[in-house]
Design a protein around this nucleic acid. Structure first.
Lengths: 195, 195
DNA sequence: CTAATTAACATACAGGCTGTATGTATGCAA
DNA sequence: TTGCATACATACAGCCTGTATGTTAATTAG
């Protein structure tokens, strides 16, 4: 806090401007159709700065995706409180997820483009860190309360359910009936867990 | 059948060579990392021929995807015969799908790259023409046999199930346990349909 | 049967984009 | 204040896509 602009400050501002501009363009036009000249123009800097802060275009995209994924996780956080019944918590969490994913362009960015650009492996790791673990624990709790753990492939079921949520988010974003997909999610969870 | 090489013949051979070469490269390296010079070199022709037969690179990709999707549909065809019980038919069809998707590179091509390159709308239309309708009819039959249609959002449920199948195919392809995912699919269907 | 037209390519070109290499100015540390 | 590293900006090389233009062979018209 001595110079008019410390290096740390400059870096933060530049990175933030880059991320914001990139997110807007990636959401609007997709990864492939967005050029780095466009991004830096929108951010008010030059390509030199971009390649100073990020290794390449993909690396910048990765940062945007991570940011967005963590925003989704944050939006869900706390929506399914520990005081709820397991099944109710599962359903509340699912609806929170659908709501959070409804932000403009999020489904396309996170569910369509990210797997193609970054590869499924990276996305899976990111999911695991954010939502998947919570979901699996919720499922586990619900199952164990209903007393029917034995032999069920819990991890696989978690994965399949998570895929169903993703598809629901995508479908709603594409104009599908939120009520229908919400009901379908609800039915799916209840039938799976309760007998 | 008069000339040593009729135009029709030439066209067919060239298109086939192009599609085959493109499929191999798209599967091996993905859409973005595959260049048209590479494709035509592998096919033994020039870029002029490619752009004569297809509007652009995406159009060629679209043709490859359509071919592959129809191969999957063909592989499933007949696996779920009308003589089976509805639920058994559903499960048989699901397993046939998982098997058909296990061909090298198919999950990546059809489930990861195609939505990103062609857009979700086109993929949905393609799915609808191939697998989704069959699935919905199967679900409907199973539900009506179990006597519990009223009020269920059938189309949405079909969509979610289809997403679960896709994820299972992806997960198995990525090294997940085919037994676990198969069991999970089986459980999901049974719990959903039977009470 | 020949002339004209069109289809099926091959070649050449223009523009744009990515990543890197290089230059410069400013903060920071000794 | 002198030297070094950081945060950029500028310049460059190579590749790729799509189009425009040429060429050869097949098909159609007269």
């Amino acid at each position: 806090m001595q110079s008019p602009r410390s290096n740390q400050d400059r870096t933060e501002k530049t990175r933030a401007a880059l991320l914001s501009a990139a997110r807007g363009l990636f959401i609007e036009k997709g990864y492939a159709e967005t050029s780095t000249p466009e991004i830096v123009a929108a951010a008010g800097i030059t390509r030199g700065a971009l390649y100073h802060h990020f290794q390449d275009k993909r690396d910048l995209f990765r940062a945007v995706v991570a940011e967005e994924a963590s925003a989704v996780a944050a939006a869900i956080e706390g929506r399914a409180s520990a005081s709820m019944q397991p099944v109710a918590a599962l359903i509340a969490g699912s609806f929170a997820y659908l709501e959070a994913m409804h932000a403009p362009g999020r489904t396309r960015l996170l569910l369509i483009e990210a797997p193609a650009v970054l590869g499924m492996a990276e996305i899976q790791a990111l999911d695991e860190a954010n939502a998947a673990r919570t979901l699996r624990e919720g499922l586990e709790a619900a199952f164990s309360q209903a007393g029917r753990d034995p032999g069920l492939p819990l991890a696989a079921l978690t994965d399949l359910l998570s895929a169903a949520f993703d598809r629901a988010a995508l479908a709603i974003d594409a104009g599908g009936s939120a009520a229908d997909y919400g009901a379908a999610i609800s039915v799916l969870i209840r039938r799976l867990v309760l007998n």
